[in-house]
């Protein structure tokens, strides 16, 4: 479904953020991308929808190569990739509904979007999504009136209303408390399962990643160090990705949380 071939990104400063990444994600698979800060997780996600221009290599989404698309074709390709951001990145002075509908911008013309005259089907879908995440009563609130968890839910709706094939998720829980983090991760994974969406989730909380995804990719200094099921994340593997540290506690904590979850 999504295929990266020898993807390289070198910043103008000379920093090599990605060193020839090869990765293939089948439809419907949720993948967690872990790694220390500066490993290139964010860059990789942004190279896929070209918010950051890759230096070389190829990105295949279904049957289309993205790195050579012109601006119009790129916009059409971006519609098929929903993105969820760290710190939510909602347009804070617009209402919740406008933020959700902004996911349809790639589909409607400028004047329609400017005058907020979206097709009724889009409006209905927006209400359905807001209802799914439990925010339908907030539709006319301004985005900056919401709490962190609520904002991220709106961000999820904005990504889903694009009707994407894949979700690119950049640190969705970085600024949320532990409980909300888990709710958000669960929501993302449930929605992916409901809609058969593939997803790449950047996340630095290893325990959280292990709980929710089928596959984990570990990135270090722009290269893939680990690719496998979450059970494969042994202390040795974590040491190669992050460096020396006592990993038993992290992994045990993940199991503890499972027990708590079961008890609930």
């Amino acid at each position: 479904m999504l295929k990266l071939k020898k993807l390289v990104k070198t910043y103008r400063t000379g920093d090599q953020a990605l060193k020839a990444i090869d990765l293939e994600i089948p439809a419907g698979q949720v993948l967690a991308l872990i790694g220390p800060s500066g490993a290139g997780k964010s860059t990789m996600i942004r190279c896929i929808n070209r918010l950051v221009e890759p230096t070389s290599g190829e990105v295949w989404l279904a049957e289309r190569e993205l790195t050579h698309l012109g601006s119009g074709a790129l916009r059409r390709a971006r519609r098929e990739m929903g993105m969820i951001f760290q710190e939510y990145a909602l347009v804070e002075r617009l209402s919740v509904m406008e933020n959700v509908l902004s996911g349809r911008l790639g589909y409607v013309g400028f004047w329609r979007s400017f005058l907020r005259r979206y097709p009724q089907s889009d409006v209905d879908e927006a209400f359905r999504l807001l209802d799914r995440v439990g925010l339908v009563h907030m539709a006319d609130k301004r985005a900056d009136e919401l709490s962190g968890g609520q904002r991220q839910r709106v961000g999820i709706c904005r990504a889903l209303i694009q009707n994407p094939k894949i979700l690119l998720v950049d640190e969705p829980t970085a600024s949320l408390d532990p409980k909300t983090s888990r709710q958000i991760m669960r929501l993302i994974c449930e929605l992916c399962a409901e809609r058969g969406l593939a997803a790449i989730i950047n996340i630095h909380d290893v325990a959280l990643a292990q709980r929710f995804v089928q596959r984990v990719v570990g990135l270090r200094a722009g290269a893939i160090e680990f690719d496998g099921p979450p059970e494969g994340l042994t202390p040795d593997v974590l040491t190669t990705i992050y460096g020396e540290e006592d990993w038993e506690a992290t992994i045990e904590k993940a199991e503890d949380e499972d027990e708590i979850e079961a008890a609930e």
Binding site: R75, R79, A89, F110, S113
Partner: peptide, 26 residues
């Protein structure tokens, strides 16, 4: 905030739409 502009760009919005949704409200 560039992140809001980035988010609108990522939806596949055109240049003018990014202006109207990402920049003007700010």
């Amino acid at each position: 905030q560039e992140s809001q502009v980035e988010a609108i760009t990522a939806t596949g919005a055109s240049r003018w739409q990014v202006m109207a949704y990402g920049i003007v409200p700010q």
